[in-house]
């Protein structure tokens, strides 16, 4: 399994005022792997995602995707390089239909211009049609067939999570950042999500960087697990290695029942 590195962060530092959110983080995400980031609440996990998307300027360090430096790109440019993401607290376009949500995800791949839309050129119409078909296919892929015309905010919670992933998939990303995809799901629903995420890696060849608190999910499917505490990497390795690491147990896992 000698894979190439897809995403690499080099001595990444992010400070908010006096608060150090991420301290000198080196992260190496290999192609076609599921790489998890775990850690106590407030350890800076979501901040890592925001840094990768460049939602705010990083304090120092470097982020590279397939060798290309992402530091100076705006988030929309980062997106065009092939990074899609979902959000911890589900951020769908709530007043748009499920289908429209996915079609916004295709924004960078659709080529039609606004004057093309007004003049109804053949190219625009064909482009729109192809996009729509693709969106319907994606809906089916995530198990939301027939729900495309429902407003996103009217979908049940689980469907919203799926739709958010479908929207990210519409970008045809190389790297998918998933922020707690099984939050609020019971164990059997979580298990379905695990199967689904594995499928993304195995069938679509997408590399996955995952933030998650459900230990069965993390341990069950990750190739590599990175543990953050107070913005510092305290452990990294295979799930088995991390699970037994004393520092991880002390700071994060605890000895109670929650990690069963």
């Amino acid at each position: 399994m000698a894979q190439n590195t897809l995403l690499h962060t080099n001595a990444l530092v992010k400070r908010f005022g006096g608060l150090v959110a991420i301290d000198s983080l080196d992260l190496d995400v290999k192609e076609r792997t599921i790489h998890s980031i775990i850690g106590p609440n407030g350890a800076g996990k979501t901040t890592v995602f925001n840094c990768i998307m460049n939602f705010f300027p990083i304090t120092s360090g470097e982020i590279r995707l397939s060798g290309e430096r992402l530091n100076d790109l705006t988030p929309d440019r980062v997106a065009t390089r092939g990074i899609g993401r979902t959000y911890q607290n589900i951020r769908l376009f709530r007043n748009m239909s499920a289908l429209e949500n996915i079609m916004v995800g295709m924004h960078i791949h659709l080529k039609s211009s606004w004057w093309g839309a007004v003049l109804r050129t053949r190219r625009t119409l064909a482009d729109e049609k192809a996009g729509q078909d693709e969106a319907v296919r994606l809906l089916q892929y995530v198990g939301l067939r027939g729900k495309g015309d429902i407003l996103a905010r009217n979908l049940p919670y689980g469907d919203q999570r799926r739709l958010e992933i479908a929207r990210a998939l519409a970008m045809k990303p190389k790297l998918l950042l998933l922020d707690e995809p099984t939050a609020g799901m019971n164990p059997s629903e979580s298990q379905d999500m695990v199967t689904f995420i594995r499928g993304l890696r195995d069938e679509l060849g997408i590399t996955i960087l995952l933030i998650e608190h459900h230990m069965p999910v993390v341990m069950g499917m990750s190739d590599i697990v990175t543990v953050l505490d107070h913005g510092v990497k305290i452990s990294e390795g295979t799930p088995d290695h991390v699970k037994r690491d004393k520092k991880v147990i002390e700071a994060y896992l605890g000895t109670g029942v929650a990690h069963t």
């Binding site: 998307m53 988030p75 997106a79 959000y87 429209e100 916004v104 039609s112 093309g116 729109e128």
Partner: peptide, 23 residues
């Protein structure tokens, strides 16, 4: 149109729209 959807997207959530590649 594509532009219309991008407009609605930034109306709903500017950051997310940007993360999906909307300039």
């Amino acid at each position: 149109s594509r532009l219309g959807r991008a407009w609605m997207a930034i109306r709903e959530d500017e950051d997310v729209g940007q993360a999906l590649g909307v300039n």
